[in-house]
Structure formats: C-alpha cells, structure tokens
Design a protein around this nucleic acid. Structure first.
Length: 472
RNA sequence: UCCCCUGUAGCUCAGCGGUAGAGCGGGCGGCUGUUAACCGCUAGGUCGUAGGUUCGAAUCCUACCAGGGGAGCCA
C-alpha cells in the first residue's frame, strides 16, 4: 500500500471547516515542542509551509502513545489522524493522532536548537538548522514571495528576463573590487617575462566574477527594448557592515527609449508593487515581523505602497541639508558625495519616506551615466543618475540614464582613464542605432531586509558570504 | 580597512584581584488538555587563545582570534 500523500500544515490551518481536510489526514514535519500532561501529549510540528505550527494530540488510546517519550525538539515525524476543532486556546484546529511514526530523532543533549529564543548571532553559526526557526522560516517565505513578485511585476509589463554572465573578462566595470576566476595553480604560477602568464589561464586572459549585469543587459535592451536581470553578483570589497555581502542578488532592469524621469517612475512603481505584493501574500509572516522586529513595519510599507515618492535633485538635497541646521559629522558641500548620515536625514527626518535623488555631480559617478547639458548658474557638471533612498537602509536602488552619445561617452571614458578597446562592443551599441536608455540596480537582500525589518543582511540570505566567512 | 563594544555552563547573562553563579535548555520523577505548560530533584565550566603583572587573575595589562555596532566602499 502506497504511503498516503501528506497534507501541508498551511492547507490544514487555513481550511474553512474540518470537513475540507482528508479524513484521516496525514501530516509530516519537525517537532517544535512537546508538552505532556499525564495521559495526553501535545506535539507541535512545523513543515515550513506556514509560520504557525500544527498541534498533534496524542492520548493514551493511541497505540503509538509510548513513542511520545522519545519525541524531542527537532525530530521529524509523520502523524495520521483526524483534523478537528481544538478545544484549547492558541490554535483553531488540531490533529488527533491515530498513529505516529518517528522518522528521525534529534538527540536533545546535542541538538542545538532549543524551544526558546536564540540570538540571531548564535543562529548565524547554524545556517544549516536556522531555517527551522520561526524567524528564518518567515524570511525564507517572504524572500520567495518577493522574488516571485519581482518577476511578476516585470513580466506583466512585458519585460524580458535575460541571464547575464557570472564570469566576465571586463576588469573595470567601475563597481568595486572583483573576485578572480582562475584555473591556474596559485602555488606554481606560469610566468612569461617575469609576469604571470594569463594566456595560460582558462580563458586565455584574466577573468572575474561579475559585479553587475548592466553592460550585458544594455546589449539586450538595444534589441528587446525592455529587459531585466535577476542574478548573483560578487563584490570583493572588505565591507563589514549589516548592509553588505560579498555575494548578493541584484535586479537590474534596462529600458530602451527611456529617460531618467521614466526610470524614476519605473523604480517607484516597482518598489510600491513589490511591497504591496508582500503585504498581500505574506500577511502571517509580516505580522510576525511587525510584532517581534519592527512595530512600525506594516504601517511603513503600507505608506510606501500608497504614496508617491519624494523627488529632488542632488543640488536641492545639498541645499536642504545645508539649511537643515543639523550638525553632521561630515560637512555638506556641493561636489562631494552624500554620506550615510546625509541620506538618512533626507529619507528619515526631512521626508519620512523614500526619496529619489537625481542629477549628481559627474565627478563622483560612473563614466556611463548621461551627461547633463550645463545651464548657467550650475555649480558643476552633473549626470542623469539617481539613487532611491529608504529609511534605515539608505540606498536601495542606484541607477542612471545611460550616455548614448558616442563622442560624449568616449570623452568620459578618457577622462576616467579607461582604455576603450575592451569596451568595443559597448561602444558599438552607440555606433549602430543608439537610443536613449536607462536602468537601475536593486539590491535584493536590502529590499527583503527593508520589507522584513531585519537588522542584518546576513540573516536575509540563506548562506551569507562576507570577509573571512564562507561556511556552509 | 578604521573606530568603539563584547567573548564565563548547551543558550542568555551576572560575577570585575582572594575556593565559579542564576535563568532557560538537558536528564530523572510527578501531573488526563497543554500553549515559552507547570511542580520537585539533578548533572553540567582548562571563564576565546597566548603571553605578562601579582603571594594570588574570570577579574588588571599586551597581542592575536571571533562576534556585534558604527564609518568608508556600494546594492
């Protein structure tokens, strides 16, 4: 006789009536906690399908009742029984067990997860077990929903999902230090004239892990019009903060026939859409985060989903900061980049919701950003760049309208000290049928971090990679 | 990479120059419906590592390692 198919706990807990469940019903999961009181035991199990556990009631009439003594936090089991209204408080339904099968035990003297709160720092050392906790289960479900919501947003707007390469030979994309990808024996490097012979490496040249799919996404935008990427990105920066990872996921739309205003509107629609999506689809998990991590979380996200973002130019931002009367650690002056404290003042104190800052000085931005025509009275050259700033996290999106004019782009590259030869294909896009186009990069983990109220980005990705840390 | 804080029982922490503690978790026992269950008993620690100061160091000093917060870099 085949094993009866199990019913997911989430399905049972959201059933209209007990009649909607199979009778008998089979449930499986991992034990969260066991309580026993004389002749009856209560076993709470979770299978990851919902935040809430299912209570299995095992009384002395059940032939497997003696098994209860061996049930401890962490062990896995299957129960077959009847779904019924629970007379106890704390849950609507429970399953009265007719049979119980212990699938795998978990020695309580060794199993590190206890039926009590653990610190996030401790759980970070147990990345293989932490998905079994309420918090990390909720993060996993919200992260999943947001990834789906992102695809849904772009697909509904006709964007093409493109997969850009992880390995790249461009070593100067301008977005930070890169990891080297090589098959050379580092203990015995082939040399040529006293230098490492890169010709002997796998690709016959130095290769790296990508820091952005932007340049390749631009190629497809110049054929398919509206495209986006969603994939892993690698930065070898020695960043030790609650907002940085060496390996993270980035969403990068690239839109042809679009200027910065269109891009800013896209970014705003996009963020509002995915926050609305997570509120609509993860209400149980979001209530959990709201209760235990950030009491204002749901209100904040609802506000964002329902109100326009503030827009200001860099010059306006500088003026506002200088007029704020705040004493900043770093002085605010036109031409220097906005510091974290400045960004946080703008989004948290001055505006109180997301802010899109545009038109930064060209000197502090990348070569590929479109140069503005300089008007009389301007304090310097600016480019059509934008950053979307949100409370608590700071920069969540960075983007720009791209420089589509070949001569201007070449001048900018020369000014940046870049050899344009390796970029021949990028320049070809400006030679043949160039278009005004724009794109941005969204840090996926930062977005999930913001949506959940979690303080540390290392708790947003399942297996965080940070300096000196790559366990699991 | 820089600045600050913290490493004591499985976990969370107290102790801050004079024989190492609590709560939770674990073990054993009790309790016929529990909800971080409850009640009783009990085991459990080279006080991050290595030096130094001292009659004596978990406690003071130095270095290193690890974790956290902030900054820079950015998403």
């Amino acid at each position: 006789m085949p094993t009866p198919q199990r019913t997911r706990i989430q399905t049972l807990l959201t059933a209209e009536t007990t009649d909607d469940a199979p009778n008998p019903v089979t449930v499986s999961g991992w034990v969260k906690t066991v309580r026993s009181s004389g002749g009856v035991a209560f076993v709470q199990i979770n299978d990851g399908s919902s935040l809430a556990d299912l209570q299995i009631v095992v009384d002395a009439n059940c032939p497997d009742y003696p098994l209860v003594d061996r049930l401890t936090t962490g062990c896995s089991l299957t129960a077959i029984g009847v779904l019924r209204e629970s007379p106890g408080r704390g849950q609507r339904y429970e399953v009265a067990a007719d049979s119980l099968t212990l699938l795998g035990d978990a020695d309580p003297e060794e199993y590190p997860l206890q039926k009590k709160r653990h610190t996030l720092e401790f759980l970070r050392e147990l990345a293989h077990l932490r998905p079994r906790t309420n918090t990390f289960g909720a993060v996993a479900r919200v992260r999943n929903a947001m990834a789906f919501g992102i695809h849904q947003f772009f697909q509904q707007r006709g964007f093409l999902y493109v997969q850009t390469p992880i390995i790249t030979a461009s070593d100067a994309e301008g977005a930070g230090a890169m990891f080297r990808a090589t098959t050379l024996d580092l203990n015995d490097l082939p040399t040529q004239g006293g230098q490492v012979d890169n010709n002997a490496d796998f690709f016959g040249r130095p290769a790296f892990l990508t820091v952005s799919g932007q340049l390749e996404a631009e190629i497809f935008s110049q054929a398919m019009s509206d495209v986006y990427t969603f994939g892993p990105t690698f930065r070898a920066e020695n960043s030790n903060t609650s907002r940085h990872l060496a390996e993270f996921w980035m969403v990068e739309p690239e839109v042809a026939f679009c200027d910065l205003d269109g891009l800013a509107q896209l970014a705003e629609d996009f963020l509002r859409s995915i926050f609305a999506h997570v509120l609509d689809n993860c209400s149980e998990d979001m209530a959990f985060f709201n209760r235990f991590y950030d009491k204002e979380l749901i209100t904040t996200l609802e506000d964002i989903a329902n109100s326009d973002f503030e827009r200001m130019t860099y010059t306006e931002a500088v003026n506002a900061l200088q007029a704020s009367g705040e004493s900043f650690e770093f002085p605010v002056q036109w031409g220097s980049d906005l510091q974290s404290e400045h960004e946080r003042y703008l989004t948290e104190r001055k505006v109180g919701r997301p802010v899109i800052v545009t038109d930064y000085p060209s000197a502090i931005k990348a070569f590929y950003m479109r140069l503005n025509s300089r008007a009389p009275g301007d304090q310097g050259e600016t480019v059509r760049a934008m950053d979307v700033l949100v409370p608590r996290i700071g920069e969540i999106i960075g983007g720009s309208q791209r420089e589509e004019r070949l001569d201007v782009l070449q001048t900018r590259m020369a000014e940046a000290g870049l050899d344009d030869a390796p970029y021949w294909w990028y320049l070809d896009l400006r030679r043949y049928g160039t278009t005004p186009h724009a794109g941005f990069g969204l840090g996926f983990e930062r977005t999930v971090q913001f949506a959940t109220g979690m303080q540390n980005i290392r708790d947003i990705i399942a297996f965080p990679r940070t300096p000196r840390s790559a366990e699991f």
